[in-house]
Design a protein around this nucleic acid. Structure first.
Lengths: 220, 220
DNA sequence: CCAAAAGTGTTCTTTATACACCCATGT
DNA sequence: ACATGGGTGTATAAAGAACACTTTTGG
């Protein structure tokens, strides 16, 4: 019965000014010194993989209570030249880009990158990243998780642009709003934006209880 | 940097006489002696998780070259009283129920169970199992993998019943066949069933090349 | 000719798509 | 008054859902 070191990597997605973003760290040390990488770290003690992910996220972004979902295990050898690891990969969604990132141990710096314009990644993580994007899209299609990328109150334009970013498509505003109205769980808060130089948008929020009601019977 | 034992469990689905089946083993030894469980085993040496799964499947079903897809990692402690493990779970699809199952080391016997009438499972694997079912449904919806559960040549009635089993629904035959005709990648082989006491059905097969052509642009 | 499963069309409802102008606010 | 993004309706096409009888084979 062999024992293996287990690492947990988290592809952290954010959303800022209509652009899908991802948090990467620049490696301070070899291997892959100077390259960018998906943040992660070793599983320790009695932690579950998710606990490891939360601890690492806390250390790297100062964030707690964020959406996390595992999407794949990478177990091939040759990814880390220092030795073979089993890597559990998560994606994280955070609801504001205003969160600053902190550099940690191995990292020279941490930075938000536009999700579709990232540099080549260390440890052959490019595959992991494209896998994360696919998993994110999949989950967005099957569950109400897009809201995790938005502030609690958001405009419909923000929501629409988020979907456009996620799937690289253009959506017609009127059709989009009709759909929003029909699903029933995206509700106006009654508030408006303020202090901008154009017509203020109404603010909406996602209602999880209504979501449960509306989508109870809709499976297939 | 802690090291952990890694196990790979495979939920093996089959399909027999219009019923979705799953392969379980009866434990010969404690812990959970006499209970049924999802087959699995330890990752060894330089294997990847998928290689471990294939080796175990070979040992337990004598099958090679079958469809395998990982769906979740279970890392909570307390699942195995002998000690904490990290478990990578796969589901496997095999294209015939005529395959016999062999008992191995820890197993008293291995048996096909109707997928919706299984006994309580050892190691708290009930959650793993329901997770596997969900993952299977998800994948069937997004990719052409249902065919992995059928022989290479199948009748449309078999295909329809498979979908009905998978999603616990009833499908109208005429609507179903119209849809099959439209997708274009389920093609008649020109052959017929023979030797039954009713009208013989035409045999069809899945054409992966046509699938690629037809579904190239259909994403969203 | 009977049993048993295979195969086949039409109507209606719902959902998706395409498309262009007026509105509210700050300067 | 103008610049900026917010907000709205209608018509057409496509997809999904409901529904019952005839056909081919073996015995």
């Amino acid at each position: 019965m062999n024992h293996y070191p287990v690492t947990v990597d988290s592809v952290i997605f954010g959303y800022s000014k209509g652009e899908l973003m991802v948090a990467l760290i620049e490696r301070e040390r070899d291997p892959f010194k100077g390259m960018w990488a998906i943040p992660g770290g070793f599983m320790e003690g009695e932690e579950t993989a998710e606990e490891t992910a939360r601890r690492e996220l806390q250390e790297e972004t100062g964030l707690a209570d964020i959406f996390l979902e595992q999407f794949h295990v990478f177990s091939s050898h040759g990814r880390d030249p220092r030795g073979r690891t089993i890597t559990v990969a998560f994606f994280a969604l955070i609801n504001s880009d205003s969160k600053e990132l902190f550099a940690t141990e191995d990292a020279w710096q941490a930075k938000w990158w536009p999700a579709y314009k990232i540099p080549p990644l260390a440890f052959g993580q490019d595959e992991m990243y494209s896998c994360a994007l696919k998993a994110l899209r999949n989950h967005v299609k099957t569950g109400p998780i897009a809201f995790e990328l938005l502030p609690k109150e958001f405009t419909l334009t923000e929501l629409q642009k988020l979907y456009e970013q996620l799937f690289n498509i253009e959506i017609d505003t009127r059709n989009f709003r009709r759909k929003v109205a029909k699903v029933g769980y995206i509700v106006p808060t009654g508030k408006k934006q303020a202090g901008l130089k154009h017509r203020p948008a109404l603010l909406y929020s996602f209602d999880p209880k209504l979501y449960d009601e509306f989508s109870k019977e809709s499976f297939f």
